[in-house]
Nucleic acid binder design. Structure first.
Length: 391
RNA sequence: GGUCGCGUGGCCGAGUGGCUUAGGCAACGGUCUGCAAAACCGUGUACAGCGGUUCGAAUCCGCUCGCGACCUCCA
């Protein structure tokens, strides 16, 4: 239990760092043994399962006579039949593709609960069917998961629900694809496995530097969820710069000065963005449109375009909605930046630099800028002053 | 071996019959700047290969090559 808790806590912290909304309920399979037993019983009663030696198996062949097993993953029963390998040792199952609803525990098995069939444990697939319908209702809209779970896990969930309750529990299945690294899949055996903590700290042989959680989030959003995403230092650094550009644009958006009329059209932009979201959550397209808008914002800033007061307000709330609320990005500022005294000190230095510049003492002004740069403070000259930010 | 999917410019990554210069990063030229940075303007490079369908294909079909996921009762 202690080990489980350790990894659970770690996972929660990582999700929080990535600015992922916490789930309302995080049920545990081991806390729903009774419900799982009940569902197995129901399936048995409906004639889609059979008991052998204290174990209960789902009868896929029987189920297939009236249902389409394999409809989610596009598999056919005949293919499964011919391609399932023979397992060593005797099998109690009628068919290799049958799966366990309740499994009798071997003596060495730690997890075990009493049931009318044996001391044992529920089959893997049952927990998801049971817990999802318990908390979301007999019919719910979206069931997510990684592509690797599509078969057999989700296929079996569908079969179980149908066999127990006569209808599908899930309306839409959404499967996200997997991440590859430098063209290869991430796996322990290849030694190219990177944990989130390592990514955030940069402490990994494969990493050239640390990548902040928001960079990672933005990186992932730049690919469609159904595509594989290739992970590399180059790609992450490109995302880092891109995100910076996006956030710089948002800073500019805050300070834009409206004029009487708009030379730009913001409704078209809005429509395009929502269209992308409605098209199977196409976040890369959405982000491309957002960048088009950023360009627009920068052009307004350099007086190449104009924006009215109403449009500006509209645009500001639109970007807030899209970037922060929908894409779930957030500005990661080092706490030092918000320290008032620190801020005053930097401003003081830069004012001295400004004076040096006026006196054409560029040696001094460059020195201040370069030294600040070294500490990680980026100075940007403006027409009538300066701006700075912490890298 | 079987099933399914993928292969897009230097990199990442959208697009699925004709006109998206997708977008980001990188590169090059320019504007601005004392010089930078940022920003803006402009430029190039592309659809794995071969064949087919079509007036027209990155997009449809076939084959070949390369890569991946699943097919392991591990949740």
């Amino acid at each position: 239990m202690e080990i489980v808790q350790k990894y659970t806590n770690n996972y929660h912290r990582n999700m929080d760092e990535l600015n992922t909304l916490p789930p309302s309920i995080e049920p545990h399979a081991s806390a729903h043994i009774i419900e799982q037993e009940a569902m197995a019983k129901q399936i048995l009663k409906n004639g889609f399962a059979y008991e052998v030696n204290g174990s209960v198996y789902f009868d896929v062949e029987k189920y297939s006579q009236t249902n389409n097993y394999g409809k989610l993953s596009g598999r056919k029963l005949e293919d499964l039949q011919t391609n399932t390998r023979e397992l060593t040792g005797q099998s109690e199952k009628k068919n290799p593709f049958d799966f366990a609803l309740w499994k009798k525990a071997e003596p060495e098995h730690i997890m075990r609960w009493p049931s009318e069939w044996s001391n044992g444990f529920p089959g893997w697939h049952l927990e998801c069917s049971v817990m999802s319908t318990k908390y979301l209702g007999d019919k719910f809209d979206i069931h997510g998961g990684g592509l690797d779970l599509q078969f057999p896990h989700h296929e079996c969930e569908i079969a179980q629900s149908k066999a127990a309750k006569g209808e599908d529990a899930v309306k839409y299945w959404m499967h996200n694809n997997l991440i590859t690294i430098e063209g290869q899949k991430m796996s322990k055996s290849l030694g190219n496995f990177i944990k989130l903590d390592e990514l955030f700290s940069g402490k990994h042989d494969k990493l050239e530097k640390a990548y902040s959680p928001m960079v990672v989030r933005f990186f992932i959003l730049q690919a469609h969820y159904r595509s594989t995403l290739d992970f590399s230092n180059k790609a992450l650094q490109a995302s880092e710069k891109g995100l910076q550009r996006l956030f710089n644009g948002l800073e500019t958006l805050k300070k834009l000065k409206p004029t009487a009329k708009s030379s730009i059209e913001i409704n078209t932009l809005k429509e395009k963005c929502f269209k992308a979201l409605n098209d199977d959550l196409n976040t890369p397209i959405l982000i491309a449109h957002l960048f088009d808008g950023i360009k627009m914002i920068n052009q307004i800033n350099t007086d190449d375009e104009t924006i009215s007061k109403e449009d500006l307000k509209e645009l500001q709330s639109f970007y807030k909605l899209l970037v922060f609320d929908i894409l779930g990005l957030k500005v990661e500022k080092e706490t030092a930046g918000s320290d008032e005294k620190f801020e005053q000190a930097v401003n003081l230095l830069l004012n001295i630099r400004l004076e040096a510049k006026k006196n054409k003492d560029f040696a001094t002004s460059d020195k201040i800028r370069d030294e600040l740069n070294k500490i990680g403070i980026i100075v940007k000259d403006k027409k009538d002053g300066f701006e700075w930010e912490i890298k």
